Simulated scan of single mutants.
Amino acid sequence: MKNVKWVFVLYSLGAIASMCAIGVAVGMRSLPIAILAIVALILIMGNGFKTKKKMREQGLF
């Protein structure tokens, strides 16, 4: 448990929340909320991958 990278846990929880928001938006038939959730998902996952690359280059991962 000591090797957990908590920043990645937070990124993954944010991505899961965005995916859930997409499902809720589809259920509500709300296109603006769906688009907002998709954009949020792309930004969160992009930042996660960018952070992982940066940590790998620094030798921290």
Rank of each mutant, 00 (worst) to 15 (best):
V9D: 04
L10D: 14
T51E: 13
I33Q: 12
P32N: 08
I22N: 01
G46A: 04
M28R: 15
G46N: 06
V26F: 07
R29F: 11
K53R: 14
R29S: 13
K53Y: 09
V39E: 07
L43K: 12
L60T: 03
Y11A: 07
M45C: 15
V39P: 07
G48N: 02
I22L: 04
I35K: 05
M1S: 14
G14Q: 04
F8D: 10
I44W: 06
I38S: 15
A40M: 14
K50L: 13
R56Y: 05
M1N: 13
M19W: 00
L36G: 09
G23Y: 01
V24G: 01
I38Y: 10
L36A: 15
G48C: 10
M19H: 00
K53G: 07
L13Y: 08
C20P: 00
L60I: 12
E57K: 15
V26W: 01
V9W: 02
Q58K: 14
V9R: 09
G27A: 05
A17D: 05
M45G: 13
G14D: 02
M28K: 15
I33G: 04
V39R: 06
A40W: 01
G27V: 01
K5F: 12
G59I: 05
A37W: 05
P32T: 03
L36D: 01
E57N: 11
I44R: 09
N47T: 12
V39D: 03
N47G: 14
A25R: 04
F8L: 12
F49G: 12
P32L: 03
G27M: 08
I42V: 15
S12K: 10
I38D: 03
M19T: 08
I16D: 00
A34G: 14
L36F: 13
L10R: 12
M55Y: 11
V39Y: 04
F49P: 01
V7E: 15
A17C: 09
G14L: 06
N3F: 10
I44Q: 12
I22H: 02
I16L: 11
E57L: 13
I33E: 08
N47P: 00
G23Q: 02
R29Q: 14
K2N: 14
L60K: 11
A21T: 04
K52N: 09
L41D: 02
V26C: 08
I38G: 13
C20L: 14
W6P: 00
K54A: 15
R56L: 12
V26P: 00
K2C: 08
G27T: 02
K50A: 14
K50H: 13
K53Q: 11
I33L: 14
M1I: 12
K5P: 09
A40D: 08
G27H: 03
A37R: 08
A34W: 09
T51V: 06
F49E: 05
K5C: 11
G27K: 04
